[in-house]
Each structure stands twice: as structure tokens, then as C-alpha cells.
Write a protein that binds this DNA or RNA. Structure first.
Lengths: 131, 131
DNA sequence: ATATGATATTCGAATAGTCGAATATCCGAA
DNA sequence: TTCGGATATTCGACTATTCGAATATCATAT
């Protein structure tokens, strides 16, 4: 269906999709931190960390507060970030389906839909879901 | 900290990070579907859809069951995919912190840590969290 | 066997993402 | 003010992703 803002969602996901950026976010879950701190923790150079922070800033995942000459970065959507880190760390079992199963699924679905009277109630309008 | 498998997590996220692939996953949440079905639903050509499906397969997000000459694709980690779609569709408020706030956070944290006796109990070992 | 429909793969061109080096900026101290 | 530390930006090279076109594969019906 190519949801109207699957582009926005994809852009957000892209911001997450780099090992160094994930590591930065992981660090920030612990509490605010400035670039120098991160240099000690990450196998990346200062310039590179700044570049990744810029990406995270554009995605509105982090922001900073200037404290003297330091910039203290923090998560500006901490719940989103924590949930994302939890989600990608999760290890769901991978299911395998047989053609027969798929067929019966489809039939079950068709039957369920047929059962409803004329107007297909609650079309379960799922978009890259808002809530 | 550059968690040992932030690479794996980033790779998984990359598979999600494309508008067309998100649209495909969104479609598959509804039920299994073959390439021809998707062609009708998406603004993309057959070859391209196959290419994206290959990416999703490598990420173990989808698999297919061959039904005659058709390949019925389905989600092989449906919960993961549904949770991800929900998460990226969520619209968390963006918080803004002042230097003062960050400072007090840090102090609060330091105080909390100091309060504990010698061995810093439960270091909240969060990795790109497994569960 | 061959043709046909459904899907995958390969190739090349265009675009986007990544990184280090060099440089710029900005702030507080001397 | 000049300096040094902290951070950002720019640039260029390199690598990766994306897409369409063409082609290959494979299952079924003829």
C-alpha cells in the first residue's frame, strides 16, 4: 500500500541503522554524555562521532545542552529509543510455514470476512501505525 | 560500548529501512501474499519487488512457500515485524532539556550510586538488549 | 518439447552513506 | 587577545544501495 509516510518511517529507521549510532544511543540510555566521553567508549574518532551525532540530531533522536564548552547530548525521545533497542535485541523464533498452512490461513481469513454482513466492519486500517 | 552485536542489530534495522520494504511488510501483516499481488499494491516493478524481498529474506523477516508456480511470502517473525511497525509509527513527544536539568540528573545519579555500599549492585547491564 | 506466466538474478549507471584529514568555530582561561 | 580544548563542518575518496533493463529459471499447461 506504500503508506503515505513509509518514507518518514524509513528515514527514522535509517538513523538507527548503523552500529556506531546504536552504540551511541545505548550509551545515552545510561544518561547524558558529551563527545569526549563517547570517544573513550567507542572505536571511532571525534569527527566521525560528531557526524553520527548530526544524523541522530536530524532524526530528532538526540539533542544537546551546552554546558560551558561541552555539549551534553541526551535522548530527546528516550522511550522510543529504549523500545527500539529492546526490540532489535529481542530474539524471536523464526517460523516456517508449509503451503498447506498458508492455504488454510487464507481460507480462514476468507471465511471470517464472508461471515460479516455487507459492510466489512473495522477494516483494521493499519498504516505504519500511529497511536 | 559498541556492543558485540550492534552490527547484527544495525543489519536488521537496515533491512527495515526502506519505504518499499516497509510497505511490503505492512502488506504481509495482513496475510501471505505473492509477488504479483504486491505489484498491484506497490508503485514498484516486479524485479524491484523481488530484490527487496531478497533483502527481507536475508534478514530472516520473510520467507515463502511455493504453491505451484507462485511463491507465497509470509512474515517469519510476525511479532517482531508488527512491533517494529507499531514502534516507528508511534509519535513520542520530543523533550528538550536545559543544562541545569542535565546537571541535576547527573548529580542524582551520582548520589544514587554513592548510596549503595561497595559493590555497585546490578550495574544494569544493558546491551542491545537480549531478553 | 515448447510456450507461458511467475519470479529471480545479473549488470550497469546513478545515488547515497561512510570515513579520515584538514579546517573552522566557539568557549573559557590566562 | 591569544591560547587550548571541545566540537562541528567540509572535502574527497571509497563503498554500498537502489533501480531498470535484460535475461534466466522454473512450474504448469498444451
Amino acid at each position: 500500500m506504500e503508506s503515505p509516510d513509509s518514507h518518514a518511517a524509513a528515514a527514522l529507521l535509517k538513523a538507527f541503522s548503523h552500529p556506531t549510532r546504536l552504540a551511541i544511543l545505548l550509551e545515552l540510555v545510561t544518561g547524558p554524555s558529551c563527545v569526549t566521553d563517547m570517544e573513550d567508549l567507542l572505536p571511532a574518532r571525534q569527527a566521525n562521532i560528531s557526524q553520527h551525532l548530526a544524523v541522530l540530531r536530524h532524526a530528532k533522536l538526540v539533542d544537546y545542552a551546552q554546558v560551558g564548552s561541552l555539549r551534553c547530548y541526551y535522548l530527546c525521545r528516550p522511550n522510543l529509543v529504549e523500545d527500539m533497542l529492546t526490540l532489535v535485541g529481542r530474539n524471536d523464533p523464526v517460523v516456517k510455514r508449509t503451503p498447506a498452512e498458508l492455504q488454510s490461513n487464507r481460507e480462514a481469513l476468507a471465511k471470517a470476512l464472508a461471515k460479516r454482513k455487507s459492510p466489512p466492519k473495522k477494516p483494521v486500517r493499519r498504516e505504519v501505525s500511529k497511536r
